[in-house]
Design a protein around this nucleic acid. Structure first.
Lengths: 163, 163
DNA sequence: CGCTTGCTTGGAGTGCGCTCGAAGTCTCTA
DNA sequence: TAGAGACTTCGAGCGCACTCCAAGCAAGCG
């Protein structure tokens, strides 16, 4: 049994009841632009274009163990699958929300190790969730200050414009 | 006429009507722990303690022009005022929300230049506010994904615990 | 007086997350 | 078959925001 990468789908003994047949995919985007030919083997530049990451960054992610092993052509060029794209979409979200690369690498490693790591994965994500919540609170409180200051400047401007 | 640093108080020709006598202070904290003696001259280590910034960082902020000129004792040691603390509290918020140091330095410079820079200050803060809003949206969307994945792991754990 | 503690300076070093360059190979189109 | 352009690797370099170091000065205390 293989374990999916970006979608730890309920499988085996775990919670197969009481859930829709279609496993929840946690907001993974629909296959982005599946090739007109129906293929599933994107070049690095296609993926770069699609994800907004540079080709350099994509190679670097693979080198440090953040990509779960990308398929290759017989001549050694990378060919990314839709599954890879989904994984990258998760990674991008985590990165945007400030998860350190080392933590993402750890998570990738846990995913490779299979189901036995569910508990640690849960912990890791839960910790990050707390982090994200805290950051939202910080941002919100700054937003209040910004609103207030901007109002002051705007009032001053409007007042001076009246003359 | 001097211009306050962290509180561009409505002053002079600008908008003195229709606003409370006490200018809004945009959530600046009350004087943090005004010295028992009522003094207003904190050492660098007191400020470091209070703000959570290191003394190194405080000196560095001053060097790069992010602190508006800190008072000194006759022997050259820094003595921070409550006004300095308020400014630092703003800076800390902006920094926590990802404003680049260069932009904060620019803002500090504008504050030093006086009222004529209100418009540019408004622009700068408005741009950052957009940034912050965008980041909140990113965080929120990641939060949804995290919730979903964490639920999956938690379900799996609970299911396995039932046996 | 010597010792400790805390401050001063300028400049060098660190860690993170990329980002780029060089040199060579492969693929695609004409 | 030729040429353009995309791909490969490895390692070095970069920008940001600190962070630390060395050397020295000043104040307080026994």
């Amino acid at each position: 049994m293989t374990v999916t990468q970006s979608e730890p789908v309920t499988s085996g003994v775990a919670a197969t009841a009481a859930r829709p047949a279609r496993a929840p995919n946690c907001g993974a985007p629909p296959p982005p632009h599946p090739k007109p030919t129906g293929e599933d083997r994107y070049t690095i530049s296609e993926v770069a274009e699609h994800t907004g990451l540079s080709a350099h960054t994509l190679r670097w992610y693979e080198r440090i163990g953040l990509m779960p092993h990308v398929d290759r052509t017989h001549t050694g060029q990378r060919r990314f699958s839709n599954r890879d794209l989904n994984w990258l979409s998760l990674v991008t979200k985590l990165r945007l929300t400030g998860m350190p690369v080392a933590d993402m690498v750890r998570y990738a490693e846990l995913v490779r190790l299979g189901e036995s790591t569910f508990a640690e994965r849960e912990q890791l994500l839960t910790a990050h969730r707390e982090d994200v919540r805290q950051r939202i609170a910080d941002l919100q409180s700054t937003l209040d200050v910004l609103d207030c200051k901007i109002n002051i400047y705007a009032d001053a401007r409007r007042a001076s414009e009246r003359f």
